[in-house]
Amino acid sequence: MAFVDDLGAALDKTPGGGIILTSLDAVMDWSRGKSLWMMPMGTACCAMELIAASFSRFDFDRHGSIPRPDPRHCDVMVVAGTITRKMAPAVQRLYDQMPDPKWVIAMGNCAVSGGIFYYDTYSVVRGVDEFLPVDVYLAGCPPRPESLQDAILRLREQVSTDSIAPGKSRKLTSPLPAPGSARRGEPPVGGGDAG
């Protein structure tokens, strides 16, 4: 990808290069959006729906989203399930191993906010966005496979607005606090968990 990144930067500075860059962006976004390979970071219940989604009935492959267990093959990490304090460093490490550009889908309430495990527990990270930049939040406990398909399609829309020029592209990695140290504010009035 380094070559492509340099190309984008060079074209951006060239007079008239903007037109070529726009056409290149269109090609890149089209190809990226049509083959978002997933890193199935399934930890808990949502992992079952993630498996169901890629099997014969819901058939994710038709969207070009093939689950690959190796982070180095993947474009999008689907965090499906509760992330505990013990697990968070491993998730961070796997995310770091994925090549840029990379996206994160937080699947299920646990990955979005802690969900049912928001209150009273000592070991759960309240949402994967405490240490990863999340692109698509997917609510549900667990979400249906159809909603995961919708999330993938939404992500594809988002990918289609990206540019390969460094200045125009969204920030791919942001400096975030180490897992566990981040603190959310007080819980919303009324609470948000099932019960």
Binding site: D120, T121, S123, G191
Partner: peptide, 22 residues
């Protein structure tokens, strides 16, 4: 984890990471 402080199921376990349920 091996470096955990305290034993959570004790009734007097204190952890500022716990948010009590209203």
């Amino acid at each position: 984890t091996d470096d955990w402080v305290g034993h959570p199921l004790r009734k007097d376990y204190e952890d500022d990471r716990i948010i009590r349920r209203p």
